[in-house]
């Protein structure tokens, strides 16, 4: 297949055991087919339409839109996140099916960006959700967004895009961080019950 580039072939030659080849193949299929849930939170929302339409055509890399969180592989958070929005984002993320990935666009989810002293936006997204790829810029252009997808694909192929596993293993840490900003307006327990080994202690 044309999609097996030189890098893929080199990786394949290095694999020793049959199970490693199976894992590699499964990851190859995962990276070649990415259903994207574009969560337009800030100014980055306007960068997504040109990324997926005629000008930049993300579909040639196997990236296409997903209609619902159940069907999506990656959630693209495009910009600043108000506390109220973050609640919806966490709920959406928890509805997605593993393996699932998060791409954060722009400076705002990394360090607050131009909203660094705002009272109602979060400053560091990776305290609340496991971010796999961040694309810096204010705002990153579609070329940079596509570059972010390429970085995610590389990560998936290497088997390192395991943010969902990290979220499950460290659910107490993430929920405590979330509680710090939500206070008594925390998400209902049933959205994350299944992450806890004792059936929901939060």
């Amino acid at each position: 297949m044309d999609n097996l580039n030189k890098k893929d072939k080199a990786q394949l030659k290095e694999l020793k055991s049959p199970m490693a080849v199976v894992d590699w193949a499964v990851n190859w299929f995962r990276k070649q087919s990415i259903f994207m849930l574009a969560y337009g939170t800030g100014c980055g929302a306007i960068e997504i339409p040109p990324t997926v339409t005629a000008r930049y055509d993300a579909e040639r890399f196997g990236v296409r839109g997903a209609a619902t969180p159940r069907q999506a592989d990656v959630i693209v958070l495009s910009g600043y996140l108000a506390v109220k929005t973050l609640k919806r984002v966490i709920r959406t993320y928890e509805q997605m099916q593993e393996p699932k990935y998060v791409i954060a666009l722009g400076s705002c989810p990394i360090n607050g960006g131009m909203y660094w002293d705002s009272y109602n936006t979060i400053k560091q997204l990776d305290r609340y959700l496991p971010v796999d790829v961040t694309v810096a810029g204010c705002m990153p252009r579609p070329e940079a967004v596509l570059e972010g997808f390429m970085a995610l694909k590389d990560k998936i192929q290497r088997g390192e895009a395991e943010g969902a596993r990290d979220y499950r293993d460290n659910i107490e840490k993430y929920k405590n961080n979330q509680k710090e900003i939500f206070g008594d307006k925390m998400l209902p327990g049933y959205t994350c019950d299944w992450y806890f080994s004792d059936g929901g202690s939060f």
Partner: peptide, 14 residues
């Protein structure tokens, strides 16, 4: 749409 589009076997990969 004047795009390149996915490979022919994209549906199988999906």
């Amino acid at each position: 749409h004047r795009r390149v589009g996915p490979p022919l076997w994209q549906n199988v990969i999906d």
